[in-house]
Design a protein around this nucleic acid. Structure first.
Lengths: 328, 328
DNA sequence: ATGAAAGCGCTAACAC
DNA sequence: GTGTTAGCGCTTTCAT
């Protein structure tokens, strides 16, 4: 049995409500406040948040539910949110769904049951739809992945635009058979795919794309096969850093030179994209800003539930490196 | 106000105790069980875990407290633990301390207050000592970082051995001025440092080492300066992948060739270490196994608190790549 | 098999 | 300023 407020009250010789008030900084005499403090020390008392929340509808922790903790974009996002939460004295309940809708559903229910104050969520395509009919008891801010802004605030990159930028850059460098490697689970991947298609059409080029589970292994296997085709692509665009890595491995394994034989570009300015030779052209996302914005939207929503729906769209920055130089 | 068990009871036309029993799978007539199930459906009821735990001393979530979520070793560890927890129907409360003892203390108290069932913890050097006098109310398993096994179960790499292996390998390749770049915040870094010192002594070589905040930026700055010294090192050993990355950047920036001018080796088989040219020699840690072991120890401790203290020491695997070939 | 009632640890009215 | 009282939503005796 752990120490309760009653033990402190007894030790301090006051009632438990007085202890409660003293701890909350309410109006109590200095003398009593000191006695309570001493009693807390002596007993080693820690408030029981279960009880406190049960009673006071106290703010529960913030939830953060991301699709893949291996993806550095998400770890960076988590850090940004957590830093912001920490500054405001909020705890963060973090969970990882591995792009699995079933685990997503489980964790959503879990957070419901844990009575979190609000959720920052990067859902799979599958859950995005279900989410709308779900009527959760806490506000949700979608981040990185969102559909039409019908039910939830959201913070996303201008994905179509960013991907089109990448394609246009490749076209400018003289590439023609530009292949697109996209994830199959997120709205983000779909939007990037749309941008790819639009830019290819504008350039009068034939699109050539795959939608894969967003892991490096899947990309590596797929691209390996792709490169064996008669008319092989002269450029690859990958819709996240995991897929990008898979592309790079496959191209290397095929003994092709970058950018001589094929150009390569992708999303997320991970540190390794600059360290490999040749360094890789990427779209950099303003991850920090996205995390802070998501947290901000959530806090505002908490304080003013009737605010109109907001969708924050951020622009990516194209960092051109050697991997997309014109072929020799 | 959210839906409570009373609403379900009313809807089903039974008492709340009956609902509780029906939900817990107690002895209730089939007919009532069906009515309750229907009422749960109709009302959209979700049990309030705060109340349930408050009452029943139900097992809280598992806590995981890591030092740096940017470090891929920890994200891999988290995934392993989380996967295992998921299989057993346990939730995971994840927090990130950024190697900051103050945040560590805050989160420890927090987990105490959240009444977690148990904690998997990678503490800083500073907290490791305090932890011993802390008398937490839940069992703790230290992972990656642990001192003498005095108070807590732990799972660690054989750090000294692994680092000595790296040094011996470099000596075999003809390196003599082998520099060591170690973190300053963890017992792990200290043990690797000890292994470095021992191996250098055995080889009759003069040690030359630094202990830094474990970030790539810190390593990059320090190594840049190091390389400007008259008798510059002909090899670097870095004690984690962040430091390793900093070393690589600094060596490149100085215009030196690897392995021609300097050799480079480090810890953690991150995918980028294989992608850069030249690929980098590393010690691979059995991260998956470490995560699973930590979770296993914790569960066992939960079921049998009086078990003797256990320390699991795992061996790393040295993966030799081009970065440590003999100088031309 | 079911209901009534007690109580987990806490806070917030309401008294004084 | 402080104590008394009444729950928050739930499980668990103890009756019936």
């Amino acid at each position: 049995m752990s120490i309760s407020i009653n033990d402190v009250a007894r030790a301090a010789g006051v009632s438990k409500s007085t202890v409660s008030r003293a701890l909350a900084g309410g109006s109590v005499s200095e003398e009593v406040r000191a006695r309570v403090a001493a009693a807390v020390q002596a007993t080693g008392y820690r408030p029981n948040l279960m009880a406190r929340r049960l009673r006071a509808r106290d703010a529960g922790p913030m939830g953060v539910l991301v699709a893949d903790i291996r993806n550095p974009f998400f770890t960076a996002l988590i850090r940004a949110v957590e830093a912001e939460a920490y500054r405001q004295g909020r705890r963060v309940l973090l969970c990882n769904t591995d792009e699995d809708p079933q685990r997503e559903a489980m964790y959503l229910q879990l957070m419901q049951e844990e009575r979190i104050a609000g959720l920052i969520f990067a859902p799979t395509q599958a859950s995005l739809h279900k989410l709308e009919r779900m009527q959760l008891e806490f506000p949700v801010v979608l981040v990185d992945r969102a559909g039409a802004p019908a039910f939830h605030d959201s913070v996303v990159l201008d994905n179509a635009q960013a991907c089109a930028t990448l394609v246009r850059h490749l076209v400018d460098q003289g590439r023609r058979r530009i292949a697109g490697v996209f994830g199959s689970t997120s709205s983000t991947a779909r939007e990037r795919c749309d941008g790819y298609l639009a830019a290819m059409r504008d350039a009068g080029l034939e699109p050539d794309l795959r939608q894969l589970p967003p892991t490096s292994d899947a990309a590596e296997a797929e691209v390996a096969q792709w490169l064996r085709q008669p008319q092989r692509p002269d450029a690859f665009v990958a819709s996240n850093s995991l897929l990008l890595e898979g592309c790079l491995r496959a191209i290397r394994a095929a003994g092709l030179r970058i950018p001589g034989d094929v150009a390569l570009a992708g999303f997320d300015n991970e540190r390794w994209t600059e360290l490999v030779a040749p360094a890789i052209t990427v779209i950099e996302q303003p991850v920090e800003a996205m995390g802070r914005a998501a947290f901000g939207l959530l806090m505002e929503r908490l304080h003013a539930p009737d605010l109109p729906l907001r969708k924050v769209i951020m622009q990516g920055r194209c960092i051109v490196r050697e991997s997309t130089q014109a072929a020799a």
